[in-house]
Computed example of a mutant assay.
Amino acid sequence: MIAIYALTWLGVLAAQISPGPNLAAVASVGLAQGRRPALFVVSGISSGMLVWSILTALGLGALIEAFPFSLLVLKFVGGGYLLFLGIKAARATLKKGANATIAPDARPLTAGQAWRRGVLVLLTNPKAALMWAAVASFLFGQDLSAWHVLAFGPMGALSGLVIYGTYALLFSSGVAMRGYSRFSRWFEGVFAAAFGAMGASLIWSGVREARN
């Protein structure tokens, strides 16, 4: 189980490091308003991650319990989506040119408003829901119980808190803008490798199960 958690966490970690709406929300506030509002945005994003992880774990767990055959379907659907994310990240890694510049957001935010922005960025992003559903499918596909899948949620939320919290500190000081574009392609490469491996493993598990 530790090896399965480690591979899953690596994929989620790479996704969190890579460019996306979460990073843009944190960076835009950090650049214009400083550390404190950006950290509240981070706390909202982490809260949203916890919500999606719980919903997908419990929802898919109930589906599999009610319809055991659905696990085989989830292996192909979830594995296919993970492979899609991995291929997309690989293409971004190979693509030449710098990433789009993050624009500062100077609209003043209270602590509550910054937290809500983080929550809404995460919960209104359909890709986040699909990613967490695919991650849960992968964990279920490794014969883990619903409780084991549910236990992974706080790990993902905590790593998001650390990763985006670090970004909040760096962008609020202006350090990250000078170096992020240079290294973001490497982050995309790790993301591609981890999610590609998870997707391929899940699909292969489905193929073996379908043959039996």
Rank of each mutant, 00 (worst) to 15 (best):
A157F: 13
W115D: 02
G156I: 05
G118S: 09
A157D: 13
F138W: 02
A129C: 06
P108N: 13
Q142C: 00
T110F: 12
I163D: 01
R117P: 05
G112S: 08
I102H: 10
K127R: 04
A151I: 03
A103I: 14
S159K: 13
A134E: 15
D105W: 10
A111P: 09
H148W: 00
R107Y: 15
V135C: 03
L158F: 14
L122V: 06
W132A: 13
Q113S: 04
L130D: 10
Q142L: 01
K127W: 05
P108C: 14
F152R: 04
S137R: 05
Q113T: 06
A106G: 04
F140P: 09
G160C: 14
Q113H: 04
S145C: 06
F152K: 06
A151D: 11
D105Y: 14
G156N: 12
P104A: 15
V121I: 01
G160E: 06
G141W: 03
W132T: 04
A111F: 03
G141M: 04
F138C: 09
A128H: 07
R116V: 10
G160M: 12
A129P: 05
V119K: 02
D143P: 05
T110H: 09
F138M: 00
S145W: 04
G141Y: 05
G118V: 07
R107P: 10
M131C: 10
P154H: 10
F138Q: 05
F152G: 12
L122R: 09
F138T: 07
A133V: 02
R116K: 00
L144P: 01
G160A: 10
A106Y: 15
G112N: 13
V119S: 07
W147G: 10
G118P: 12
V135S: 00
L122E: 15
A146G: 02
D105N: 13
P104V: 12
R116H: 00
L144E: 04
L150A: 03
V121Q: 02
L158I: 15
V121N: 05
A146W: 01
M155Y: 03
P108E: 11
I163H: 08
T110E: 06
V119A: 11
A157E: 14
F140M: 08
S159H: 09
F152C: 00
L144V: 04
G153F: 07
S145P: 09
G112L: 02
A103G: 12
P104M: 14
A136D: 07
P126M: 12
A106F: 12
A134H: 04
A103L: 15
G141I: 01
L139C: 07
A133W: 13
A151F: 01
V119Y: 10
A111K: 03
R117L: 02
L123I: 02
L120M: 06
M155G: 15
L161Q: 05
